[in-house]
């Protein structure tokens, strides 16, 4: 095929010899090979995911099915060590993180989409959020260590951890808020203005209700990433051996915020980095729980996205 053709005569001969049908066949074959290759690589990646799930399930099964794993504190005896303080800690920290992500992220998203327009301030904020999204999570940990722990004196507490993860969630929440709002057509806004509504009335009566599903989806996705984050919390100096629970918020709110904590991924890191193999069983069990939580959150987000698409078809 690729051989050089020098003269017209040669070209004529080649053309006569050229078998179109078998060429087409070979092309189709190559096409098919590539398609199968693509399918195999996609399948391989999914197989990797599946292997992780099964590996954790098998390794940790003894502890996963053991009720006392969820009700006991960490211990130096692997069979007695449990994840009570870490799953409770995860709930406290994630509540804080979601609070900060909602308070800071949703208004920022609304501002950029509804008010910012093509202004200079909006441009700067937009570029900045894109940058923040690409900052490695451990750098957020350094920020938290240097600023929240030492300079603001919040300590290695639930408050610091919630703030840190909240900031980590911020870019995702801002972007998904903007996308949700962008889907609402201009005509809705103009209809509201035409009836004499002010901007905030339009926002609270129309734009927010219609975009709530999308915003919520983004929030869940962001939370599902943050819940497994270990690096920034290790960096602020979260302890791994916590044999007590933070005080309940309705009893001692400030005490809860200032309380030391541990979370599931940190507990898992602690267990996996021990030399004794018996602790690896605990690590696998906590890893499997984390996977299940992540899967559940992603499924809810997936379902919500589907429902929102159905409900509002502009």
């Amino acid at each position: 095929m690729e051989a050089k053709i020098e003269t017209k005569e040669e070209f004529r001969v080649k053309l006569k010899e050229f078998d179109t049908q078998s060429y087409a066949k070979s092309v189709r074959k190559r096409d098919k090979i590539f398609e199968v290759l693509g399918l195999i690589s996609t399948f391989l990646v999914l197989l990797f995911l599946f292997t992780i799930c099964v590996d954790l399930l098998i390794d940790g099964w003894v502890r996963i099915k053991d009720y006392s794993f969820y009700t006991s504190y960490p211990s130096r005896f692997p069979e007695e060590a449990g994840a009570l303080s870490s799953w409770v800690g995860t709930i406290y920290v994630m509540t804080g993180a979601i609070f900060w992500a909602v308070v800071l992220g949703i208004p920022a998203g609304i501002y950029l989409e509804e008010y910012g327009g093509k202004g200079k301030v909006a441009k700067i904020i937009e570029a900045n959020i894109a940058n923040l999204a690409a900052v490695p999570s451990i750098v957020y940990g350094l920020l938290a260590l240097g600023v929240f722990v030492y300079r603001f004196k919040f300590g290695e507490s639930v408050l610091t951890a919630g703030l840190t993860l909240g900031l980590l969630m911020l870019p995702v929440v801002v972007v998904s808020t903007r996308e949700a709002i962008r889907r609402i057509p201009r005509s809705i806004r103009e209809a509201a203005y035409a009836l004499g509504a002010t901007r905030w009335e339009t926002l609270f009566h129309h734009i927010l209700p219609y975009s709530m599903g999308g915003i919520f989806t983004g929030l869940i996705i962001a939370a599902s990433r943050a819940i497994g984050e270990t690096a920034p919390l290790v960096t602020i100096g979260a302890l791994t051996f916590i044999a007590f629970l933070p005080p309940a918020p309705w009893e001692d709110f400030v005490g809860m915020l200032k309380s030391p904590f541990t979370v599931l991924p940190i507990q898992m890191y602690n267990w996996v980095s021990r030399p004794q193999e018996a602790f690896h069983v605990n690590a696998a069990a906590s890893g499997f729980i984390l996977l299940v939580i992540a899967l559940l959150m992603n499924s809810v987000a997936f379902y919500l996205r589907y429902k929102v698409r159905r409900k509002y078809q502009w």
Partner: peptide, 10 residues
């Protein structure tokens, strides 16, 4: 969304 520490274990 798989936690990175899980990847570490793996």
């Amino acid at each position: 969304a798989v936690p990175t520490v899980v990847y570490g274990y793996f």
